[in-house]
Nucleic acid binder design. Structure first.
Length: 1116
RNA sequence: AGUCUCGUAGCUCAGCUGGUUAGAGCGCUACACUGAUAAUGUAGAGGUCCCCAGUUCAAGUCUGGGCGGGACUACCA
């Protein structure tokens, strides 16, 4: 395939989508079409797209085809619509999966790194391995027709990329948004190390243990407690909270309740001291502590009172109401340094399944606790050290191990000590042993505790409001992901933990002195060089083999190289790099800047391409890429990073299960595309389900798309080409203005322009499914099944008349427009179709559909009246065909007449317009419209509920019944006066005629069916003339088949010889002209039987005939 | 456990701001068509619109509560 246009429309044999793919790919390659779409639009308004980088560490799956199709669709659409759409590709290259892959490859574990293998070697293997499947990715990109620039992609491990990341981190550091803090992580005091969640999930990590649990009493205080709970000096009210880790109680700084949980205040006795107390707990948990029989019993120490406490309810509150109340610190050994502690807060993880429905919060020793405290501005206490001992400031507990980490036989459980102490102080409501699952360290077998560990954070909470605000300006597809999932996530934002204790990733560019008092955040290689030199002068880095090239350090910005550099602080102290790497999500979230190595290069380009107009990825990126892009855009530029975002759902297998390697139900994208063709796969994925709904991937669905949509379109196109070649018709020649074309043409063009309008609108609002389905409906239903079918004879009958020319122009326009409308979704077939239509006289057109302009609807061509009228024609035809079917009269047998009672003049008018079409389609001689139907037709009144609703209100039901059973006389009355009065429930209601519909229901004595509101009656009387004509038509049909079987060209002229009985022969003679025209016969002759004759049957009568080419006949 | 999402015919999906008779394609059955023909058309069968309650003259559609599938996040006193 070349740029040259053809002389004629290529004849099409059979649809083969994979072959079309190959042909088109070769064409695109040869002519650099992708590059041209960009080069030709250098001065156009840019439409900015960001490619979310895939990791070439894994192989591409079918779900990648979905998300990339989505990206491709909108980029192609905008390109065709005249924008400059550059698409820089990228590779995500850091992170844990790469490391795990390498470890598997080498058969090593994390422990070996630095021992059996150097970090240097390890990282160099990571660098090599991460691009392992690059070829596959490039291939899938190519064959699926995803246009993205793979020549100059950004790669996250490159020095330039990392340098930008450092620059951005430095900016955040300067703004005070990057800080060192801690997170709560599983920690093994016995081993002195943090554990990963992976290690916690190892079998055997969770074990059943028996612990002392305490329901502690937290004493409510403060003005609000006085008001709500009635607290006074004499009247003590306590919040009850349960814990399985009493050793965390000294570090308690808050209590959490559930917002929607109902709480009760109960008056009772403390079971250990016997003192009257009032306690607050969840209503659902009441009977875990109190017995119904003791309700209202006097508060005295009767027999067994401490097993069955007397109690009475005092009040009820929602968790919401309790929120904000204060309480007295339970074990006041130390005070938190910051924050407003000892308050009741709400948290969504609070349940009433066990405990009291009030959760004791020790922010240092629980991840949920920590997050809750952070969200509520509550400080923390960490009264346990890294060895698992109570710290100095834990008063009488100081120095005691919280668990028996040293295997000391003398060890006494501090939980018990605390329980006894609280009992004595009237602060324990229940103490008991409790068996539960608790995680243990897989190396030491000792209980794990959750403990705050050092980490570097980005202070995202500082810009939370702005993040939410800017998010509201982003157009999310679907909306719910943005307003729901994403906004929700932002609402509950905690600071972004950047630290990762790994090897292969972007190093944190922070150097610190040993005591942590001085630090520097490096923002460029240049700065690093300067600081390095400075330190060297100060006598550090002396044994470094680093060299300067062009005045800059020649260094790979990865571990272990950067770790070898020591810097010097202002006070002359050595500074060492903080050991952490940063979260890989920072890598990808920074791509708007780092892909251009900004601000070191490409200032212009960067400014022009930020923020993005459009991005798309799977919903699983909501908290990943979508989030990090948004955070960095907001923090660095106070701007959104993207204006429109489409998040697609998953691709599941046929049965709705997630695809996984383990189940082996994954779909190979290569096989699939090779077998079905890229477009069928793309079209199927886009039109079968909205991209944000999950897709149940079924090959039968692709086959259906191939047949139903592409097959039909292909047939239509080949039909067109066949006849256009016969008539040597060319586009652009002898154009006929639309108003001069027949009704049918104006109708399909009207639909075409409506379609153009709707499809454009769908693409503009990021609704590809809608666009695709609309195109499909148009092609299969309207264009093929109605326009082409009804126009067929216009194409093959006679010379190139004005009518025929109009038909060519119309069909050509439709196909040419369809090619462009479908191009974003199915770039290959669209190109094929477009090129198929591109013949020599039409060189004004662009060489590729992707270089052509996306169609614009012409409002003037849209005639909604005509569209409705044609709908009527379709309804009428199908009703008449249904009637024929009912009495078994085949369509080839002409019938005399159909009758339609119509009262409204405008409907009559519409029917008159299309009566020819209906008659031809249904093979009927006459369509008679009855105006005066009284007496002939039984009619019925149908209420228009929408209009009657406001008028009748509650009387609707009665009115509907009354209207439905009106007599024929009253209906006539209603017609005459244009209104009718009904008496309902003693009141009179005047119903205007336009509030109801009068429909004819039946015509007694006729064969009748209803089409919507119309009734059609069919005259099924067969006269001898009609039968004769039926015979003639049957004969034509047989002859056509015979022509075809004799392998005649469609233009060959023939002579037909027939042997038939007299009656039948007379039938044929009566219609001789008709027959000859239809079958291109010059002569129809009665002949004597001969063995060449073919035996045929016409309406159960035998006939013999043969066809001979006219020229051959003469020679005989 | 929380958040989001989906639940309509055997299967895949439409069904807008509530309007009484819920649609399409595939599949199935029957028939027709035969110069687009390894196409095509027509008809038929097939539904508790996941369940319960509420709002309303009227609910597949709105509200509340469940149930089930999926995703994400979190692992708990």
């Amino acid at each position: 395939m070349t740029m040259e246009a053809k002389l004629t429309f290529t004849e099409l044999k059979q649809l083969n989508l994979p072959n079309i793919d190959k042909e088109i790919l070769a064409f695109w390659d040869a002519e650099n079409i992708f590059q041209k779409t960009i080069l030709e639009r250098q001065d156009a308004t840019p439409f900015i797209f960001y490619e979310g980088p895939p990791s070439a560490n894994g192989t591409p799956g079918i779900h990648h085809v979905l998300s990339r199709t989505l990206k491709d669709i909108f980029c192609r659409f905008r390109t065709m619509d005249g924008y400059l759409v550059e698409r820089k590709g990228g590779w995500d290259t850091h992170g844990l999966p790469v490391e795990l892959g390498v470890e598997k490859l080498l058969g090593i574990t994390k422990e070996d790194i630095g021992k059996t293998i150097t970090v240097e070697e390890y990282n160099s293997i990571c660098r090599r391995e991460v691009m392992k499947y690059k070829d596959q990715w490039e291939e899938v990109t190519r064959i699926m027709g995803y246009w993205v620039d793979m020549e100059k992609p950004y790669v996250t491990f490159e020095n330039d990329y990392i340098e930008t990341l450092w620059q951005l981190l430095q900016k955040l550091h300067t703004k005070g948004l990057l800080y060192k803090g801690y997170t709560i992580q599983p920690f093994s005091p016995a081993a002195g190390t943090g554990l990963s969640s992976h290690e916690l999930n190892m079998p055997g990590a969770y074990r059943e243990v028996k612990d002392t649990t305490i329901v502690a009493q937290f004493k409510a205080t403060g003005a609000e407690a006085e008001k709500l709970l009635g607290v006074t000096a004499e009247r003590e009210v306590f919040f009850l909270a349960w814990t399985t880790t009493p050793w965390t109680l000294p570090s308690n700084t808050a209590l959490a309740v559930g917002r929607k949980i109902v709480y009760v205040q109960v008056r009772t006795l403390n079971p250990y001291t016997g003192k009257p107390v009032e306690v607050v707990l969840a209503k659902d948990r009441l009977y875990a502590y109190f017995k119904e029989e003791q309700k209202g019993q006097p508060l005295e120490q009767h027999e067994g009172w401490n097993k069955h406490l007397p109690w009475e309810p005092v009040a009820e509150f929602s968790g919401e109401a309790l929120s904000g109340l204060r309480y007295e610190q339970l074990l006041p050994y130390a005070q938190p340094e910051s924050g407003d502690a000892f308050r009741v807060v709400t948290a969504d993880f609070v349940s009433t399944e066990d405990g009291t429905g009030i959760v004791h919060i020790a922010p240092s020793f629980g991840a949920d606790d920590f997050r809750t405290a952070q969200q509520n501005g509550i400080g923390s206490l960490t009264l346990v050290d890294r060895q698992g001992r109570f710290s100095e400031d834990a008063g009488e507990l100081a120095g005691r191990y919280v668990k028996n980490y040293t295997d000391d036989p003398e060890w006494e459980n501090p939980d018990v000590f605390i329980a006894v102490k609280l009992k004595e102080e009237n602060r324990a409501f229940r103490v008991e042993k409790y068996e539960h699952n608790y995680p243990h360290c897989w190396r030491t077998d000792k209980p794990v505790i959750y403990y705050p560990l050092d980490s570097w954070f980005i202070r995202t909470t500082a810009v939370k409001d702005r993040l939410l605000e800017l998010n509201r300006t982003i157009n999310w597809k679907p909306r719910s992901t943005g307003e729901g999932r994403f906004a929700q996530w932002l609402e509950n934002l905690v600071d972004w933990n950047l630290s990762r204790s790994r090897y292969w990733g972007t190093p944190l560019p922070i150097w610190r002195t040993a005591d942590g008092t001085e630090e520097i955040c490096i923002g460029s290689v240049k700065q690093l060089t300067e600081e390095f030199s400075k330190a060297k002068e100060a006598g550090l880095n002396t044994d470094s083999d680093l060299k300067l090239v062009n005045g800059l350090l020649d260094i790979d910005l990865h571990k272990p190289y950067v770790d070898r550099i020591v810097l010097v602080s202002a006070t002359g102290q050595p500074m060492y790099r903080e050991a952490d790497l940063i979260d890989v999500w920072f890598d990808s979230g920074a791509m708007p800047y780092a892909q251009w190595h900004w601000p070191f290069e490409n200032e212009e380009t960067f400014r022009r391409s930020f923020p993005a107009d459009f991005i798309a990825e799977g919903v699983d990126q909501t908290r990943g890429w979508f989030f990090t892009l948004h955070v960095l855009g907001t923090m660095l530029f106070d701007s959104v990073a993207y204006r429109n975002v489409v998040s697609n759902g998953l691709v599941l297998d046929k049965a709705g299960n997630k695809m996984s390697k383990r189940l082996g139900n994954g779909v190979d994208p290569f096989d699939t595309i090779y077998k079905y063709g890229a477009d069928a796969v793309r079209w199927y994925m886009i039109t079968n389900a909205q991209p944000w709904d999950n897709l149940k991937f079924d090959f039968d669905g692709i086959t259906e798309v191939q047949r139903k949509f592409f097959g039909t379109l292909f047939n239509t196109c080949s039909f067109f080409g066949l006849y256009a070649n016969v008539d040597a018709w060319r586009p652009g020649k002898d154009n006929i203005s639309i108003s001069d074309r027949p009704e049918l043409d104006r109708w399909i063009l009207s639909l075409l322009h409506s379609l153009t309008r709707d499809v454009r609108q769908a693409y503009e609002s990021y609704e590809p499914t809608r666009a695709g389905r609309l195109i499909e409906l148009f092609v299969t239903e309207h264009l093929s099944n109605w326009y082409v079918r009804l126009s067929r004879r216009r194409f093959w009958k006679g010379e190139l008349s004005a009518d025929k020319n109009a038909a060519y122009h119309t069909l050509y326009t439709c196909l040419h427009t369809i090619a462009r409308l479908m191009a974003p979704v199915s770039p290959f077939f669209a190109e094929f179709l477009y090129r198929q239509l591109r013949v020599q006289e039409f060189l004004g057109d662009a060489a590729s559909v992707h270089l052509s302009a996306f169609p614009v609807a012409d409002q003037a061509v849209i005639d909604s009246d005509l569209e409705e009228t044609m709908q009527l024609a379709q309804d009428l035809s199908s009703t008449i065909l249904a009637l024929r079917k009912k009495v078994n009269i085949k369509v080839r047998q002409p019938l005399r007449k159909a009758m339609i009672p119509v009262l409204q003049e405008d409907v009559r008018d519409k029917i008159r317009h299309i009566s020819d079409l209906v008659l031809a389609e249904t093979n009927i001689k006459e369509l008679s419209l009855m105006e005066d139907t009284a007496g002939v037709v039984t009619r019925k009144v149908k209420p228009d509920f929408k209009k009657l609703g406001p008028l009748l209100g509650a009387h609707m039901k009665e009115a509907a019944t009354m209207l439905g059973s009106l007599s024929q006389e009253r209906i006539a009355e209603l017609e005459r006066w244009s209104q009718i009065t009904l008496e309902i429930a003693g009141k009179e209601f005047v119903i205007p005629a336009d509030h109801v519909e009068i429909v004819s229901e039946d015509i007694p004595g006729w064969l009748v069916a209803n089409a919507g509101n119309l009734t059609v009656a069919l005259d099924i009387q067969l006269t001898p003339e009609l039968v004769a004509e039926g015979n003639a038509r049957e004969f034509v049909s047989r002859m056509q088949k015979l022509r075809k079987d004799s392998q005649l060209e469609i233009t060959d002229r023939i002579v037909v010889e027939v042997v038939a009985d007299k009656d039948l022969w007379d039938s044929l003679l009566d219609f001789k002209n008709y027959i000859c025209t239809e079958i291109l016969a010059d002569e129809l002759v009665s002949a004597v039987d001969n063995q060449d004759f073919v035996k045929l049957e016409i309406n159960e009568r035998e006939i013999r005939a043969r066809v001979i080419k006219t020229e051959a006949y003469g020679k005989k």
